[in-house]
Design a protein around this nucleic acid. Structure first.
Lengths: 136, 136
DNA sequence: GTTTTTGCAAAGTATTTGCAAATGG
DNA sequence: CCATTTGCAAATACTTTGCAAAAAC
């Protein structure tokens, strides 16, 4: 639980605000170090988990073995580009419908789900078609 | 790519066949060691990845930081019990519908998704209601 | 015989933790 | 002042890798 303020935690929180690129702890560490050069990676990890437990940020798992962090705490899903690795938000309607579909044939209680979608992002699709044009 | 047979790889594959409990590499190592006491953990990891790349088994990520392995290569989703940690198969209809819902407002190309559902499994629900009865 | 696979141990990667010192209220 | 938080470094957990020897074909 958060009991006191700390410049470090505030800096980490502020760094995340407005970002939609879902950085990893390592990237956050590098970014926050520009304002607080003495901050340590351990402190970054600790505070990210504290902020997560306080419900102020979210962790995002996209199957790459690294935790990503998201300042957007509203219920939404994510997309990972298999070409460039970027993680994007997914504005997904009927997000609860998915849970209902899963619960249909299941005898336990389903309270939620975690999902990520993968494929090729808009930018990489563009680059791919530009490459094709060059070849022709 | 698989070029030669090996007792180790066969034993790992056989150990998984028929299982629905999605064991981790470590558990597979312990299990296979009963038949091949000299097998090493590195060999287990190597072969699990070889089998996965050959499309003979699947890896399952349920957000607990450990890779689980599944001999069932058909498209299906998974459920993790937050009480006991077990991983169960989910017989989920309209599995592709989920992809379609996600693609609605997205400008890239979505080719697939990975999802796991969480909650309380049937067994743990039962245990919980038994506990309640005792207290009353 | 040549190539693949193994066992072992060491390395790698991401994250967590113990502890004395610093900071916050 | 006293409890929380920090920086540092060491530890942990899981997985991957290098290499000489063994196994497969």
């Amino acid at each position: 639980m958060i009991r006191k303020h700390s410049r470090q935690r505030d800096a980490i929180y502020d760094f995340l605000q407005g970002r939609t690129d879902h950085p990893t702890a390592d990237l956050i560490y590098l970014g926050v170090r520009e304002k607080l050069p003495n901050i340590s990676l351990g402190t970054v990890y600790r505070n990210l988990m504290v902020l997560r437990d306080a419900g102020l940020i979210r962790t995002v798992d996209v199957g790459d073995g690294v935790i990503h962090f998201d300042p957007d705490i509203s219920e939404h899903n994510h997309f990972v580009c298999q070409s460039c690795g970027c993680v994007q938000d997914l504005d997904m309607k009927s997000i609860d419908l998915v849970k209902d579909i899963a619960a249909e044939n299941f005898r336990g209680r389903i309270t939620g789900y975690s999902a990520y979608f993968y494929g090729v992002c808009e930018d990489c699709l563009k680059k791919q078609s530009e490459q094709k044009e060059k070849v022709q």
